[in-house]
Design a protein around this nucleic acid. Structure first.
Lengths: 196, 196
DNA sequence: TTTTACCTGTCACTTATGTGACAAAATTAC
DNA sequence: GTAATTTTGTCACATAAGTGACAGGTAAAA
């Protein structure tokens, strides 16, 4: 319990070192800790995401099912990251994503209203919000560029290099859809790489 | 001169309706208006972007030259948008992008230091920064998804639908590299579409 | 333990996209 | 207005990736 909030607070302080005790306690009092079993959902398509979810422990996957019925993974969310569909959460609109637990997970959840309230009360939390948005924006930009600048094989190699810790926790099927290719293509790439 | 700042302020107020006269005058006093001829650069690869550039008039293009020497367009920036390499600007790191004027352009520029200063002085500007970051994040997310969910033809059709006003202002070559395909492929797609 | 569901590797075939080359058209510079 | 440059459309061919199918492997459920 205490360690869980500690990790959450540590992450906050990392981005906003000038954080005051007042806002930290506000962040903790407003938050609740939830446990999710494997295969359960943090968010389902059609729902409005009620709270930001900081992953204390576990691994989640964000995916989308398109008109053709294909399941497309758009992200993996391990410890020390926020589970969210940002664009939809910001506007409190229904999401088209599922966020599912690949492993049993523990999240610290801060409801939308509490976040808005904190923006009114404390200048630092507004900064926290800005820094998170800027951070996610940077990640997203890198991802877009990976599609423009790299082919499937390069995207795969970069993913391994940057996510060694995740490799053994996710399936090939999920990874291929994250990389924007078919499972068979990823299989083909791996085969080619082992030959080289 | 006055209209230029008016447009810039109107944009600000749109995002932050609660803006105070104080912060508005701070934003104006710190800003300067610059004119760029066609083909000139707002930013060059290797430079640190010194200021955010609000486009009052004109059209710019952000592009990147990769190791293979290919030029890849990552965005078009028309009136009422900010010209920037966000991730690099935020951290004041050297950019790898060129931002070039496709048309003669007029920009309102607010230096990095002024922005940081305003974050200290006024709570609202921090909000402005957050909202801009969230807005750009949403755009970026949509763009990433377009690569995952759509094929080249669909990306092209969506681009036309959402940017009728830009279509006649940009070249096919630039558009194809923005869509992540070769010029010939775009040509092929257009040919196929006219047949249908 | 057995059954079931899911995951993975592989194949043959199809389709989409990249590549290099060339000429016509449009734009720009002189 | 003419020459130089850039942009565009097109082709033939090469490569990359998608598709549907099937079998073996692995992990979860009964």
């Amino acid at each position: 319990m205490k360690e869980v909030l500690d990790k959450y607070i540590t992450y906050y302080k990392q981005l906003v070192p000038e954080a005051t005790p007042k806002e930290l306690s506000f962040m903790c009092e407003g938050a609740c800790i939830k446990t999710y079993p494997k295969k359960s959902f943090f968010l389902k398509a059609g729902e409005v995401q009620p709270a930001m979810g900081f992953v204390y422990e576990g691994l989640l996957r964000r995916y989308y099912i398109n008109e053709k019925g294909n399941t497309i993974t758009t992200g993996f969310i391990p410890e020390n990251n926020y589970a969210a569909d940002y664009p939809a959460f910001i506007k409190q609109k229904a999401s088209k994503y599922f966020i599912e637990c690949l492993e049993a997970s523990v999240l610290v959840e801060l409801p939308y209203n509490k976040i808005q309230e904190s923006y009114q009360k404390f200048q630092n939390t507004e900064r926290y919000g800005r820094l998170i948005a800027e951070y996610v924006l940077t990640l997203q930009t890198n991802r877009t560029e990976s599609f423009l600048f790299e082919n499937a094989e390069e995207r795969y190699l970069n993913f391994i290099a940057e996510n060694q810790n995740l490799m053994h926790r996710i399936s090939l099927t999920h990874l291929s859809s994250y990389l924007g290719i078919e499972r068979q293509s990823l299989s083909r790439i791996r085969k080619k790489l082992t030959r080289e």
